[in-house]
Computed example of a mutant assay.
Amino acid sequence: MQKSIPYMQLRGGTSKGLFFLSKDLPEDVEAIKRTVLLAMEGTTEGDPRQIDGLGGAHSLTSKAAVVGPSKHPDADVDYLFLQVVVGKGQVSTGQTCGNILAGVAPFAIETGLVKASDPLTRVRVNMLNTGGICEVLVETPAGQVNYSGTARIDGVPGTAAPVICNYLDVAGSTCGALLPTGNALDEVGGFRLTCIDNGMPVVLLRAADFGLSGYESVEDLSNNLELKAHIEQIRIQVGPLMNLGEVAQKTVPKMCLIAPPKHGGVLHTRMFIPQVVHDAIGVLAAISVATAVVVPGSIAEGVAQLLNPDVSLFSIEHPSGECKVQLNYELLDGKIVVKKAGVLRTARLLSRGELFVEV
């Protein structure tokens, strides 16, 4: 027996995922995870090819969003993010995703959850995984979502209509504090590092401390099994220090190697998410990295090139180009207070219909 479920597939930023209305899925989170796993891989036992499901056999294309009306007084919709751990038979809700979030507002408008305005619709999204509100601005001329435009983001071919995501009060949303350890700089396993959470828990380390330039290709880093094992060992040690507990089976924190910028940005990065080397950088990870740049005494000091101390737009370089982050922050009593963080993304509706899973 197979059960049909209405869905849409959207590209959000540099990711691609299946989008569901909450009313079409079970209420229990574990049951939702099972349904998403079956939809993506066709089995609960794990298949790295995802041959019997709609997944793309890659972490960036094995994502899902569940969207529904919000009970939060300051939000229009609730958004639950699910990450399928490719081939492992696992689904994580331990983090949110800023790229998939870029598709939430268009999906909410397409499904009638939010009524469109002309020419722009503002959708306030309550991020259930971590907490926090994101204000998303979508072009909706004549009340219809516009997907065509001239906005370009690195990691996505062509251009599209801009989707503006303004994250409000997300500092410490997962770990409980912007600097979860209480320090701007820590030492773990003989390596100096900075632990930070401005919407995504991230650990920053200097690539040079591992004998690397920081500009190695994704393929070279992916094939460096010794390096990945070393970074994973540090990640496991740092998890409890970030109030995340045992993280061996979790997708956070993300690990980020940093180096001086090559193309006029403020910092060059290589992200591990957490064991896979990212082709680009996640939105919220980029926000956390950008925030680390302005934290006094962080590992980014002496690596980042911040020519103007009053800058508010940060270009975070990655293997596919750059991610620009707009930070509204101030320094109070020697501590960074982030009021708002904004990024430009794009999104596109790829398909809609019904998918089938075995009951």
Rank of each mutant, 00 (worst) to 15 (best):
M1W: 12
Q2V: 15
K3I: 14
R11K: 03
F19P: 13
F20Q: 03
L21P: 09
D24V: 00
D28Y: 05
R34M: 03
G42D: 06
I51R: 03
G55R: 08
T61R: 08
V66Y: 10
P73Q: 04
P73S: 00
L80V: 15
Q83Y: 00
G89L: 07
T93D: 07
Q95A: 14
Q95G: 06
N99T: 09
I100F: 08
I100S: 07
V104P: 00
I109Y: 00
R124Q: 10
G131C: 05
C134E: 09
E135V: 15
L137T: 15
V138N: 06
T140C: 06
Q144G: 07
V145F: 09
S148P: 13
G149S: 05
T150C: 07
V156L: 10
G158L: 09
A160V: 12
G190T: 08
C195K: 07
N198R: 05
P201T: 05
L204Y: 11
F210W: 07
V218W: 06
D220I: 11
N223K: 14
N224T: 14
N224D: 15
E232M: 08
Q237A: 05
G239N: 11
G245K: 11
C256E: 14
C256F: 10
G264V: 14
L267F: 10
V283A: 06
S288Q: 01
I299D: 04
Q305C: 11
L307C: 02
P309A: 08
S312H: 13
L313Q: 14
L313H: 14
S315H: 12
I316E: 03
I316M: 03
H318S: 00
G321S: 08
D333E: 11
K335Y: 02
K335H: 12
V337D: 09
K339A: 08
K340F: 09
G342F: 07
G342Q: 10
G342L: 01
V343S: 11
L344N: 12
R345W: 12
